[in-house]
Amino acid sequence: MDQLEAGEIGQRYPAIPRMWRTAWEEFTTFLAYPVEIRRALYTTNVIESLNARLRKATRNRGAFPSEQAALKTLYLNVRAMTRPDGVIGITRSNGWKATLNAFAIQFSDRININK
């Protein structure tokens, strides 16, 4: 950390070493997780893309006559995004089985993948 402060980056951007010092405890906690879990934590593109499509579907429709109509619209949009093999075809999430297994090992008291 001292090298960062004394180096070119620390001299040019003094806020960077301060940010590292403040976030260091959270960052090292993040590094304690397996690679698969860390990837899931910092990769949210699939979720964001799904949410964006669902928001667009409801916003373009306007008002719904009932809650059932809104749920049907959301269901049909998710179904349209899903490939025949059951995978949501927004973007590919590589290694999801390994990630799910890592979550099941790390959080065995909270996750049961056999449901």
Rank of each mutant, 00 (worst) to 15 (best):
V78N: 02
A69E: 06
A80E: 13
L71F: 13
I88V: 06
A32P: 03
R83H: 05
Y42M: 01
R55V: 11
E8R: 07
P34E: 11
N112T: 02
A57N: 03
A70K: 15
L31V: 04
A98E: 11
E25C: 09
A57I: 07
I90Y: 02
I90H: 03
E67Q: 11
N60Y: 07
I9W: 15
A69S: 13
A63C: 09
I16A: 05
Q11G: 12
L76V: 05
L76I: 04
T99N: 00
R79K: 07
D2L: 07
T44M: 04
R55G: 04
L4D: 14
M19G: 06
G86A: 03
T43C: 08
D109H: 04
R18S: 13
I37T: 02
L74E: 07
S66R: 13
L4H: 08
N114K: 09
Y75D: 10
A15N: 05
D85R: 04
A40K: 06
Y33N: 06
T22E: 13
I111H: 01
T99Y: 00
A57T: 11
L76N: 06
S49C: 13
V35N: 06
G7F: 10
T43I: 01
K115P: 01
L41N: 00
K97M: 05
M81S: 09
I90L: 12
T73D: 06
N94Q: 14
F103I: 00
T29P: 00
A98C: 01
P14F: 12
R61K: 09
R59I: 15
Q3W: 15
S108M: 00
R39M: 00
E67M: 15
I16W: 03
I47D: 04
A32N: 15
L74M: 15
N112F: 03
R53D: 07
L74N: 06
N77Q: 09
R61Q: 14
V87M: 08
Y75K: 14
T73V: 15
G62K: 07
